[in-house]
Design a protein around this nucleic acid. Structure first.
Lengths: 202, 202
DNA sequence: ATAATGAATGAATATATTTTCATTATAAAA
DNA sequence: TTTTATAATGAAAATATATTCATTCATTAT
C-alpha cells in the first residue's frame, strides 16, 4: 500500500500553500502579466508541471488569490458593522494594519492584489465579486464615519471624501511598501488618522 | 522635391506625441508587461511598424517616459527649495495636484509610472535616475516639513514619517484614480493636509 | 523486494508577443 | 506627370511564455 489519503492530502496542501505564497508575492509586486509561471514555480520551489497539477491555468491561480482577498474584505465589512464605538473601531483597525505592514508583506500584498484586479480586462466572476465587496466596504466605512461624526468623535468633513481618502492612503502605503521595500517607514496612528480625529480626542 | 524638413519634423513630432500619450496611459494602467505594442499602436492610431520607427524597443519607449517623469520630479525638487513659507508651498503644491487629479489622468499616470518603474528587474539608467530623484524629493520634503515645524506651521510629529505618509497617500490617490476611475472622489485640501497642519492654522 | 498510488518533473508543443523589413502611400517640387 | 524623401503599413520571422503529458520519483504495505 502507498501513503494514506491523509498523507497525500497533507502533501497537496503543503505545495498549494507554497504556490499560494509565492504567487501572491509575485503578483502583488510585478502584476499578473509580468509574473511568469516559471517565476511562480521557482518561487514555490516546485516544477512548472506540478503547478499545473494544482491550477488549470495561471489565471485560475490568480482567481483563487482574489477569492482569498475577498474573504479578507468580508471580515472587515463584518467588523465595521459592529456596534462598538466608531472611533475605537477605526483606531483598532488602523493600528492592526500598520502593525501588519511592520510585521511582513502579507497584508500589503493582499491590498496590491486588489488593485491589480481592477486593471485586468474582462474581469472574472471572482474579480467582479471582489470589486463589489470593495464598494460595500467603502460605503460601510462612510456610514461608520457619519456615525462617529454624530457622536462628535470625528471631524465634520464630507464622510465619503474621508472614507475614500482613508482607503486610498492605506493603499498608497501598501504600494509604497511593496515597491520600495527597504525605504518604507511606518507612519504613526496619529498621522494616519489625523484627517479623521481631532488632536485632543482622548 | 518632397516635403520640407520642417514638415517632416512636424509629422514626426505629432506621431511621437500620440505614441507618448497612448503609452503612458496604458503603462500606468496595466503596467509594462501587460501592455502590448499592439495596444500602444492601436491607442496611438498608428501601425506597429511606425512605432518601431520611433522607438527601437518597447523598453526604449518606456525609458523615455521615465525620463519625462524624472523631469517632473526635478521641477518639484526645485520648487521645494524655494524660500517661500513651507506651509504655503505645501498647500499650493497639494492643491495643484488635487486639481490635476480632477482635471484629467495625466498627472496620476505619471505617478503610477514612477511606481511601475520600481518593480522592474535590472532597472535601466533612466529608472535608476528616477529612483534617485524620488529619494532626493523625499529628503527635500522632510526638510521642508522640519522648517515649517520650526516656524510653528506644522504639527510636531516625526518629519520623515510625515513626508513619507504625504507621498504615499498621494500615490494612493493616483493609483485609486487610475484603477477605479469613475468612483474616484477628490478629497479636500483640508483632509489631505490634516496630518500636517493644525485645524485652526489660518 | 515489489507492487501500488499519486506526487513531481521537464522537455515538447502550442500560443502570444515582440521585432524586422520589404513594400506602399503621401506630398511637394521639377 | 514624374521624381524624390520620408512616413507609414502589416505580414513574416524571431522570441518568449503558457500549457501538456509521457515519464520518473517517493513512500508505504504486503
Amino acid at each position: 500500500m502507498p501513503r494514506t489519503k491523509e498523507q497525500y492530502e497533507a502533501m497537496r496542501i503543503a505545495t498549494r500553500n507554497r504556490i499560494h505564497s509565492a504567487a501572491i508575492k509575485l503578483f502583488a509586486k510585478k502584476g499578473f502579466a509580468a509574473t511568469s509561471v516559471h517565476d511562480i514555480a521557482e518561487g514555490a520551489g516546485i516544477s512548472i508541471g506540478l503547478m499545473y497539477r494544482h491550477y488549470k491555468t495561471k489565471e485560475d491561480l490568480f482567481n483563487e488569490l482574489v477569492s482569498y482577498a475577498a474573504t479578507g474584505l468580508e471580515k472587515v465589512i463584518e467588523r465595521f458593522q459592529s456596534d462598538e464605538s466608531p472611533i475605537e473601531l477605526i483606531r483598532q483597525f488602523t493600528l492592526e494594519i500598520l502593525n501588519d505592514f511592520e510585521k511582513d508583506d502579507a497584508f500589503a500584498e493582499l491590498l496590491m492584489l486588489m488593485n491589480q484586479s481592477s486593471t485586468l480586462e474582462d474581469p472574472s466572476p471572482q474579480i467582479q465579486y471582489l470589486n463589489e465587496q470593495s464598494e460595500v466596504m467603502f460605503n460601510q466605512t462612510a456610514r461608520l464615519i457619519e456615525k462617529g461624526q454624530n457622536l462628535g468623535q470625528f471631524k465634520q468633513e464630507n464622510a465619503s471624501e474621508m472614507a475614500f481618502y482613508y482607503f486610498a492612503s492605506l493603499q498608497g502605503l501598501a504600494m509604497t511598501k511593496i515597491t520600495i521595500r527597504k525605504r518604507y517607514i511606518t507612519p504613526s496612528l496619529k498621522i494616519v488618522t489625523a484627517f479623521l480625529i481631532e488632536d485632543d480626542q482622548d
